[in-house]
Amino acid sequence: MHEIIAKARLSPNVTRIEARAPRIAEIRQPGQFVIVHRAEEAERIPLTIADGDPARGTISLVIQAVGKSTRELVALEPGQFIQSIAGPLGRPTDLISSGKALCVGGGVGTAVIHPIAQGLRRAGASVVSIIGGRAREWVIFEEELRRLGEVIVCTDDGSYGRKGFVTDAARDCLAVGGIDVVYAVGPVPMMRAVAALTRPLKVRTIVSLNPVMVDGTGMCGGCRVGVGEEVKFACVDGPEFDGHAVDFELLMDRLSTYRAQEQEANTCSESGCRIGLG
C-alpha cells in the first residue's frame, strides 16, 4: 500500500501526485517508470517517474486524466492509498555527460523530460528545454526546468511564450546548431515531427514511448514496438529508443487497439451503468 502524500493540479487535466515508495525513490533513474495498480479491479497503468525524494521516501507521478482508470487515480486524495506500485521499471535514459542537450516536452510528456533534464545536469551536460501546451494553463514543469537551464515555452494560441508548436522552436534551436542530442517526449505526432527534424541533421534523438502495457516485465509482449528492423518490448528494452528508428505509425495504430473499450468504460463510469453485473 502506498500512501498519497500530496497532490497538485498542474493543468486542466494533468495532476501530480506524490506517493510513498521508499525503495523506488532511492534507486530510480531518469527515464524509468512504475506500474501503478490502484485497486483490485483496476488496470495496471505504466507511469514515468517524474521526480523522487529519497529523504521523504516518495516519488512523483504526473497523470493526464484521459479515461476511467486515470480519472480514478487522480481522484485519490492525500491520506488515501494506491494498492501497488511496482518499479522502477525500464532502462534508464542514455545521458550525455558533456555538451548540450535539447529537451523537448509536449503536454504531459514534459513531466518525463524533467527527470531526464535533471540527470543531464547532474551528469555534466547543459540543457535547453522547449516545452509547450495548448494555452498558458496547459504548460507544466516550467519552473522546475528553469532551474536546470534555459526554457522556451510555446503555446498553440500564443497566450504565453512563443506562439506555435514545440517543433517550430526546436527547428530554430537546431538551426543555430551546437545541439549534441535531442530528447523528445510527448504525443506521438510530436515525437515523430521532432525525429523528422533531426534526421536530416543527423542529430541523435531519443524518444520515450508509451504503448499499451500489462505486466511491465517483458512477459506479455503487448508493448511491442518497431525499432529499425527489430521488434522491441518497450517495458524492458525501452521505454526510450532511437527516434530515427522508431515506427511511429505502428505505435499510433497499436495505441488505438482499445479505443472502443475505452469509450465503453467511460460511458459506463459516467452513467453508472451496470453492464455485466448480471
Binding site: 479491479e41 488496470e43 512477459m219 453492464i275 455485466g276
Partner: peptide, 23 residues
Amino acid sequence: SANEYLTRVNLMAAYRFPRSDTP
C-alpha cells in the same frame, strides 16, 4: 501472445470488463 491474452483475462479479470477495468 498467449501470455498477454491469458494475463488480461485471468490476472486482470478482463472477462468481467467493464466491471473490471482491463479490456
